[in-house]
Design a protein around this nucleic acid. Structure first.
Lengths: 140, 140
DNA sequence: CTACTTGCAAAAGGTTTGCAACCGG
DNA sequence: CCGGTTGCAAACCTTTTGCAAGTAG
């Protein structure tokens, strides 16, 4: 109970800290994205289904789009680079690496310490390096 | 003149080698993609515009989609991973690296020898590593 | 000839937009 | 109350599909 309240307060503070009003919808979405410590990949559609499956009030698709975009700008989510014509997001915002299967077009995580870089270029003038990911393309 | 004929024959042989009939449309598309040694990024739309701007006969969009997909499967093109909801292709099929600007969502090439990896994981069972690219996310 | 290709138009699928109604501070 | 948010439906854009007509070998 106490735990639950604190978690909700954490979310509210997180939102406020980015200038986002803690509305009912944003709190519900945040709970579904950040409530346990597991990170995962998702799409707008899968997130929408996940939320409505739990018997919550339905959130408008437009709101889910808005909120995910806002969370991405706030740095709570990272957009995944793919070749599919659909946006994928990752709740793991730290630098990490992926296998990309060209046949199935699936992305899977690579354990961070399995990859080491010994040389990295400078960022272009006026820009800073935010993070770095290695994509290893695989096939049968 | 001789040069021109040879270039065309090269394209025809390239297509035949992959089991693709050298049709008028495929040859024209191949010329626009591979005729000089410069490599570049493109979308279906930009390729379509590039071709029709030259006063060529118009090629149906569906055919451009088909052809680009066939060329990608044949290994003449590489699909670029992006966060835009549109497919991008690269005529440079060798392993190479990119800066990805999160603000503008632009990809720019990094000179290959500017990056060195000292540790790389094994491919998952039953798969082979095809190539490896580093994406460095940058921002202002 | 025959199988592979092309072109067209319609349909699909994901995302964005405009605007009125709503609600958090 | 006010300005930020939400919900809805229509609009938008890219990609896919089905099928009849065209063409390379």
């Amino acid at each position: 109970m106490t735990k639950f309240i604190n978690q909700k307060n954490d979310i509210i503070n997180k939102l406020r800290g980015s200038g986002l009003r803690p509305t009912k919808q944003r709190i519900l979405i945040a709970k579904n994205l950040f409530e346990n410590n597991r990170t995962f990949h998702f799409t707008i559609d899968s997130l929408n289904k996940k939320i409505s499956k739990k018997g919550n009030e339905k959130i408008s698709l437009a709101t889910i789009y808005n909120t995910v975009e806002a969370f991405t700008e706030a740095g709570y989510l990272k957009e995944i680079l793919t070749s599919k014509n659909k946006s994928y997001y990752d709740t793991n915002i730290k630098s990490h690496h992926h296998f990309y299967d060209e046949g199935t077009k699936e992305l899977t995580d690579i354990n961070y310490n399995q990859v080491k870089l010994s040389k990295v270029p400078m960022a272009p003038k006026g820009k800073k390096i935010k993070n770095l990911e290695v994509v290893i393309r695989i096939q049968k």
